[in-house]
Design a protein around this nucleic acid. Structure first.
Lengths: 147, 147
DNA sequence: CTTGACCCTGCCCTTGTGGGAGGGTGGAGG
DNA sequence: CCTCCACCCTCCCACAAGGGCAGGGTCAAG
């Protein structure tokens, strides 16, 4: 094993395929700021540190960060991701649990989409009838003022 | 005019068609909390107060609150509303200005809808292929882990 | 005079992310 | 060895648009 891994030198760590937070950020697409934040809220386990207190990430940590990044890009909340991560790491998880999390998230998305579409429909209707010129009459303002 | 209106008694104020914040809230649909907040951020002008420092709203104030409420329900941001309110109060506004604000807001909505629809499409595809039973294999987790 | 329903201000919480201050470190070039 | 810059560290603050609570004042009815 050589030296105790709890306190590596920076150069040493890079030599062993471990990366600093900047490289982990570039490799995962998660900003440095957010990597620290995910650690602070316990989404990512506490990683090793160098003597200088620099965080050191393994390939597996970076993999987890990419998982988080991808999940965020699909709109999952941090709490959803917490659950997905634990399911991911649990080799005997039932796929039904994963499916449930995804399905609930999808329903939330669909509902918000529907709400926004109804806003768009109203706005579309109102702007269609707005001259959009120098004149002050405007059905948009009239709607806001009446309803 | 009778008494100076700067410091009314509560009962006095109600007698003149003015309302307290609770009534203004019920009449407008804006929560008491948010009425105060809108005042704090300058969306609503500072209203009169009674001797006891209670806020007193006129019918026109309530009308403005309803305008704000309706605009929020169409998804306009507070900053958009600030602009819409000033256009509403400016009798010589060009309707083109109103239309522009509405159109930009609509574009933002449409873009967010598109992003969310693409999330839903991906999720739908993934959940379709997930057994959703006791077995651990799950294309959802595989996607999150690979991409 | 008490009680309950209001009202007041002020502070903290949310979600996810960015920004900056103030200070320590690593490695390269002079 | 010294200097620099890029990087790292920890805190604190900010945003949207609200919710919630604490601790106190007030009003009207009984």
């Amino acid at each position: 094993m050589g030296k105790n891994e709890a306190f590596l030198e920076h150069a040493d760590a890079l030599g062993r395929g471990l990366v600093d937070i900047g490289r982990a950020s570039k490799a995962s697409g998660v900003s440095v700021k957010m990597i620290r934040h995910y650690e602070a809220i316990g989404l990512l386990k506490k990683v090793a540190r160098t003597h200088a207190n620099y965080r050191v990430y393994s390939a597996s940590d970076v993999h987890t960060l990419r998982f988080i990044k991808r999940a965020r890009s699909l709109g999952f909340s941090v709490e959803d991701i917490r659950e997905l991560l634990s399911l991911w790491q649990n080799k005997s998880r039932p796929s039904a649990s994963v499916k449930r999390v995804a399905a609930e998230h999808m329903n939330g998305l669909k509902q918000r989409i529907a709400e926004m579409q109804s806003m768009v429909a109203t706005l579309e209707h109102l702007t269609e009838h707005c001259h959009g010129d120098h004149r002050p009459d405007c059905p948009i303002l009239e709607d806001l003022a009446k309803a």
